[in-house]
């Protein structure tokens, strides 16, 4: 008897909620960025859990692609942070409003 599926789903929901708190309440753009990674990971956990319980490989293949896309997102996102910091000398997302209308 393995660990029941709802345990994994509940843990994943809790981790996702913590990630949402980080995105909504923190002002440091790098911490916001890491919170997004946390949310991606909690969804990955759901996918892997369902994949194992259903005996279907699709979920794990999807997680593989999510990891690849997260790597691409990290590279581009951090490049944007660096270039923003070079122009504005800040990582506070409240001061990054040049695209605001």
């Amino acid at each position: 008897m393995s660990v029941p599926l709802p345990y994994y789903l509940g843990l994943s929901a809790v981790l996702f909620a913590i990630g949402v708190i980080g995105v909504l309440s923190r002002r440091n753009v790098i911490v916001v960025f890491m919170s997004v990674e946390l949310m991606l990971n909690s969804v990955n956990l759901t996918l892997v859990a369902y994949s194992s319980f259903l005996g279907d490989i699709t979920g794990q293949a999807l997680v593989f692609f999510v990891i690849a896309v997260a790597a691409a997102e990290a590279a581009v996102g951090l490049a944007i942070v660096i270039s923003l910091y070079r122009n504005k000398q800040t990582v506070n997302i409240d001061e990054m409003n040049i695209l605001k209308w």
Partner: peptide, 29 residues
């Protein structure tokens, strides 16, 4: 947890890509 779910490849990838590559990039920045 991935290992508990018998997803060996993803467990290794999680450490190699996330904890290895992505977080090193973040710490570097």
């Amino acid at each position: 947890l991935y290992l508990l779910l018998r997803a060996q490849l993803l467990a290794v990838l999680e450490i190699a890509v996330y904890a290895g590559a992505i977080m090193v990039l973040v710490v570097f920045v």
